[in-house]
Design a binder for these strands. Sequence first.
DNA 1: TAATATATGTGCGAGTTGCCAATAGATGAG
DNA 2: CTCATCTATTGGCAACTCGCACATATATTA
Lengths: 141, 141
Amino acid sequence: MPGRRRRGRRCRARTNRISRFIEPCLLLLLHRGDSHGYDLVERLQELGLGQQAADSSVVYRYLREMEDRGFVDSAWDTEGAGPPRRVYQLTAQGHEYLTSWITGLRETREVVDRFLEAYDKHMELEDHTVLLAERAVNVDH
Amino acid sequence: MPGRRRRGRRCRARTNRISRFIEPCLLLLLHRGDSHGYDLVERLQELGLGQQAADSSVVYRYLREMEDRGFVDSAWDTEGAGPPRRVYQLTAQGHEYLTSWITGLRETREVVDRFLEAYDKHMELEDHTVLLAERAVNVDH
DNA sequence: TAATATATGTGCGAGTTGCCAATAGATGAG
DNA sequence: CTCATCTATTGGCAACTCGCACATATATTA
């Protein structure tokens, strides 16, 4: 038999597992109009991505990464109140990237749907079997 | 203005981003009946998680981790042909864990649904505006 | 005996992400 | 004026994830 094992219990992951989903959300918000990071953090909640607030550092990081990849442009806005804002604008490439995210999400939804259906069907069958078994017992007595 | 930036372009992630989804798939398969890793790798494809094969090392890793967490039990099967198999069996805790995964996935589906609807609605409105604008131009001329 | 299929496992390196701290301008209270 | 606070952006780190390549071992077949 292959190698032994049994390792120490690790502390469970605290990962959100949805934060990559922030990317298309940001792209959609920017498609509705130019905006800066701090504002986007707040507007992400309205989009309702699981009702929990997105971490701001994550949002800023995605914005910078997307700029590096050419999906958004940025410019400093020193007008208006408060410290200067870096205002982001969607590029043509960013728009394409958003549509590719959309197709990807539609596929994801189908995969999840298929899985949930498989689960429901399996559980239904099991219930049915259990019912039949119980009925059989009742008939026997 | 806060700190400078502009970092080197990184090579894009090759992560599947769905592989955590392997976990509930394995649990469902084990709910249908005891099985060993090599077999589960193949049956994962039938469950259709994006048509691409799951990496076997990932599957084995999840199985071991789930055993550490008490969601499955394992026993060596030296009967039958070929090298010995570690046969996994779902525990009561594993069953609970599966149902918690199911509720989580239903939520995920709703979040994705809401997002796709928001996208469609936004794009519809935009098309409409563009149509109106074009019509206005036609009327003007 | 050597190649192949079955079956399980380890190690590594690159990538991801939540949390916390640093920076800095604007604003309002005392 | 000075200090606290709000707005706004960014950097760093430690923990975790995951695909890939490889190691191991048994059974089957050529």
